[in-house]
Each structure stands twice: as C-alpha cells, then as structure tokens.
Design a protein around this nucleic acid. Structure first.
Lengths: 338, 338
DNA sequence: CTGTTAGCGCATTCAT
DNA sequence: ATGAATGCGCTAACAG
C-alpha cells in the first residue's frame, strides 16, 4: 500500500535530517551534502512519499499548472493541439489542466474561473468564446497564449496560421491545375470569432486570382455560416447563378462537406465535373469518398509552440507572435483541366 | 480589478466578525445570525473574494474534485460522456478534472498519479489501459467508476451497455430485412480491453442467427483488430472465401469503415450489392455516403450515470452495476432483400 | 551546508 | 451563536 499520509516530516526523520533539508533536495533549490541527499532520496522511495500539492502551492504561491481552455475536446484539430501541448510541457515542471467550453460562453467562463481559483500559472486558449476585451483583462493577470485565434491587442501572445498565404497557395494550386472559374464559399463577418481567418482566406483567394490576371467574379463568391448545411446552400446558389465554374474553394471543410453532399445529390461528380477543396483538414480520420484536397494546420507544432510560449511568459521572457505555415493536402477531389 | 490577495481575514474585518464566522457562512456548516451572515456575504461580493482552494483542501483534506481519465478526447463517444459527466456534476460541489491517456499506458499512469497527487475525491475511467488488477488497486483507495469497460472484480462500479442485446438486435434487424448470409467482423481476444465487449457482440450475433434457425458459418466470421485497416482486410478475406453473403455486421465502426472502403475499391456498392452495419456510431459528424447503420451508445446518459455514481460512492452510498440499452441507428447502408 | 521558525489561507475544535 | 487557537504540509527566509 503506497503513501498513506507520509509527510516531509516522516522522511526527515527516516533520513535523520531536518525537514528543510528534505525540501531542499526535493526542490533542488540549493546544495545539499551528497550523503544526506542520498539518504533523503532513499527515504522518499522507501516510504513512497508523495508531496502534498496543496501544501506546496499554498506555501509557494505557485500551482505549477497551466490551464488549457478549448471549445470542445472532440475534434482532430484540438487533438493535435493537445498532443503538442503535452509534448511542449514535457520536461517542464508544469502539468496541464484541461477544460472544455462546449461552445458555450458561460461554461467557458466558469471553467476559466475554476482555473483561476486553482491559481494556474499560465493559460492557453484554443479558440474560445471570450471577447477580446475579456481576454485582454485575463491576460493582464495571468500569462496567456491564444492559439488559432488572433487577438489584436495581444498579438505577440498569439499562435496561428498564415491564412492568407495558405488560401493564396490553394487558389494557386487550382489555377495550376488549369481552373479559371473558381468559386469561393466564404462566411459572413459576424458568424464566429474566426471571422478574421475567413476574411484572410478570401483575401488570399482574391490576390491569387489577380496575380493570375483574373478578376474576382462576385457571382462566384457566396457566403455561408461555416456550418456544413450552409455549404450545401452555397452550391445551390452557385448553380442557380448562370456563371460557369469548374472548381470550388471552400473557406472551411465543414462547408466543403455540405457542398460535396449537395453536388452528389445533383448528380454532379467530384472531381470529374467539379473540383472541390476545403480548409482545415478536419476529417482525416473520417471516411470520405474521395477525401478532400484541403489545408492542414500544423496543430501539433502549434500546440507545442503554445506550451513553450506560456512557459516563456511565466518565466518572464518576452514572446513573439508566431505564424505557422500550412500544408496543402492534395487528394483526389481536384482534377486537371484541359 | 478583481481579487488580488483577498483572504478570509479581509472580509472578516470588513464585516466586523471573526474569520471563523466567515468560514461558517461560506461553508454553511452551522447557523450564523442573519445580520452577520448578510454582512459577510456583502463583504464577499464587495471585495470580490475568492477562496483559496489550496488552503481549503489543505485544511479540509478534501479537494472537491473528481478526475476523469480517458483514452483520448477526440471522439464523439467521449464527447457525449463528457457532456453527461458535466451534467451529472452540476449542482454538486465537485468539479471535474480531465486527463487524456492518449492510448498510452504510461501517459495514463502519469495522469492518474497526477490526479492522486491532487487528491481527487473520486475517479471516472472511460476505457483506460490499466490492467484489472491495477484498477482494483486504485479502487481500493479512491472511489472509482468505470465507464464502457467491464471490470469483473468491480462489477458494481461499472457502467456500460448491453453489448449482447445490441448485437442481437442488430443481427435481428438484418434478418428482418431478409438477409440470411450475414458475415461478421469481430476481433481477436487480445487486442484490447474492450475485448469482452466484442465477444458479447459476437455472442449476440450468434444467438440471433440460431434463434432464426440459422447456424453460424465459420467462414463468414473473420477477425480484425478493431482498427479500420483490418476491416478492409476482413472484406478481402470474405471475398476470397467462396461463401456468398449479402450483409456484413462489423463489431465496430472503425472496421466497418475499412470494409466500406475495400468494397468501394472492388466496385461493390453499399447497400445495393452488400449491406453493411457497424457499432458505436462513431462518425455522426463525419461525411459518409451513405452513412452507416450502426449502434449508438447512450454516451450522455452513461456519463451522467457515472457522475452520479461517483458522487454516491464518495458519499459512502453503495452503487450498482448499470447496463444501458443501445439504440440501433438505421441508415441507408442496409437494403431489403427479395 | 543545515536546522529553526514563521507563515501560506482556511477548517475546525475548543471555550465562551 | 461566535471568537480564539491549532494545525494541515510545505516553502522560504533567517540564523548558525
């Protein structure tokens, strides 16, 4: 039977030293005679001692934890972020605490409060529903890093991808494949906090077309709301307009799936009749026929960067905004024209 | 600016009472004069006081937390469980702590240790890699509930579905649709702890056939390892055998997706040529054509039951094993025969 | 280097 | 009902 209520005092006795010496070797704050250190370590393992984190935190004022807040655990993207954070924290003395906001602001706020009550030494937000002002307020009191969401007032503390470039490259890819009439499914500005991302994606699309000497045809740009259903609607709208197009670039995978479904129902084949691309690579684990050409966010790397960054912040170091480059995942949903 | 370092003492002063009185109204352990109580509450909100959880835990010996350990956050099933747990804990004084074992036993053990160090008052395991013996050992020291995994020695503390019945019903459904030659993709006994579930699913399949006067054809039962890839292999094996079959019942969705893929590659249509069903309803959010007829585990209800159960356990009450009934989700992956 | 001591913030007897 | 006093287990000055 492991530890019952073994305290630092027990091992001090067992090792014939004072409790401060024990604390010293455990916290490795200052030198301790080799023999005493050995005796302490021996006692620790003999008695299977486990320090009381509450007492530690109470006395030191530090909890040695960092809180991770997200929209919801159940997504591949978050899963990657999570792995990255775990990796990034490895070796450090800090351990992560997780909370799932469930896309509900109230729940998220409660979770945040719980973290604050637990005196987390740092915070990592992956997305999040809090307003910029609230984030800034929180950041004033606790080291905080925002992943996959840009907070202008906290730019240096943000880790995200270069949406513009990724969209540019995706459009460029479509152009290279011979497509000239490329539709784009975007989203209205007010639907999500991710709005700025979506806007940048549109900008990348536009610029790529312009650089290819093609003007954006407003009739080929339709707005959804980021959800799958709206992707299907978007296709219907595109079809109703008489403008011909050979490819669709959706600002996110969700809508792309909706589009895929709508096309399927119409008997329009992908990619034989229409090429289709998305953004986020949300369905890597899913079963899609054919899988979508899309943009993959380096979630693991971003998570790791986030962990490293909070650690730096806690450590008093300055951090800088980090822009990650995405990878275009080419799959059979795009065909070469001509 | 909210609380800085406001302690119980500050509000004691502000309310002209002793700290013990403050503690009393906050912990509502014993009666306090109405006026004093009001004064205290007023001071608490005025100063935006937040109790120090570490001091609380250190003094009381309780952390008022329950730890939730899972394989990995990123699955719809876990997502449901999570929601259920959140619901079930609502109103109680306990708040959850989450850990993701990432399908790695070492990581899981570390997470468990972290929970133990944090003196969680209860534990909920959703799956998990620990051996039965280890689980029993942990359960000896901490109230523990196992979700979706049967631990014989801890039967009363388990919450799971009736795999046998669900499989029976699914097979029955296939039979009702006119199918007579129904293949089954199962898994070898040693691949996972979920093995007993898989076995029960096979048993349900077998019994349903027998009750319909059909003997199980060993040639139509193939073993995978629960992963998608093995589902594809299974189909290849079935195809190689000369036995005809019109439907496949896979013991889990993962393998069913693999099977779906293999069939597609072979140009065999689902459900026109072969009907296909799975188990777990893992891809509700995914894009599948057609979506699979499968078995849905009532994850939310199970999560809620788990939360309630740990609370009971902590409270010293006895708990009983809980078997949940599943729902068969009918989708267009099954066709009617004849 | 090492032992002694004073808190950390709060729950809890113990008196009153 | 309520205030004073202890102690939870540990860290961090503070003296040697």
């Amino acid at each position: 039977m492991p530890n019952k209520k073994i305290t630092i005092e027990d091992i001090a006795q067992q090792a014939n030293v004072s409790i401060s010496t024990v604390s010293r070797v455990l916290r490795k704050t200052s030198g301790v005679a080799a023999d005493k250190r050995k005796a302490v370590l021996q006692a620790v393992s003999d008695l299977d001692y486990r320090p009381n984190v509450f007492a530690q935190s109470l006395a030191s004022g530090q909890s040695m934890t960092i809180g991770v807040v997200t929209h919801n655990f159940g997504s591949p993207f978050y899963d990657g972020i999570l792995r990255g954070i775990l990796q990034g924290l490895e070796g450090s003395e800090y351990s992560p605490l997780f909370a799932d906001g469930r896309w509900d602001k109230t729940i998220e706020q409660n979770a945040l409060q719980a973290f604050l009550d637990r005196r987390v030494d740092g915070l990592i937000f992956v997305g999040g529903q809090l307003s910029e002002a609230e984030m800034v307020e929180v950041a004033r009191k606790t080291p905080l890093i925002s992943v996959a969401r840009i907070i202008d007032a906290l730019a240096e503390q943000c880790i995200h991808i270069d949406n513009y470039q990724a969209a540019y490259e995706m459009t460029r890819y479509l152009l290279d494949m011979g497509h000239r009439n490329i539709a784009h499914i975007t989203a209205k500005m007010h639907y999500q906090e991710t709005v700025s991302d979506v806007w940048q994606r549109y900008a990348g699309y536009e610029q790529a077309l312009q650089d290819a000497g093609i003007a954006v045809d407003p009739a080929l740009v339709v707005e959804g709301n980021l959800m799958q259903q709206s992707g299907a609607m978007a296709v219907e709208m595109l079809l109703m307009g008489k403008r011909p197009f050979s490819a669709i670039f959706s600002a996110n995978d969700q809508m792309a799936f909706g589009a895929r479904l709508a096309l399927y129902r119409r008997g329009i084949r992908v990619p034989d009749d229409i090429s289709l691309t998305g953004f986020d690579d949300e369905m890597t684990a899913a079963f899609t026929l054919p899988p979508l050409t899309t943009v993959r966010q380096p979630s693991v790397e971003m998570g790791e960067a986030a962990a490293t960054a909070v650690l730096d912040l806690i450590n008093g170091d300055t951090v800088a905004e980090q822009l990650f480059k995405c990878q275009i995942i080419v799959r059979e949903s795009v065909s070469r024209l001509r």
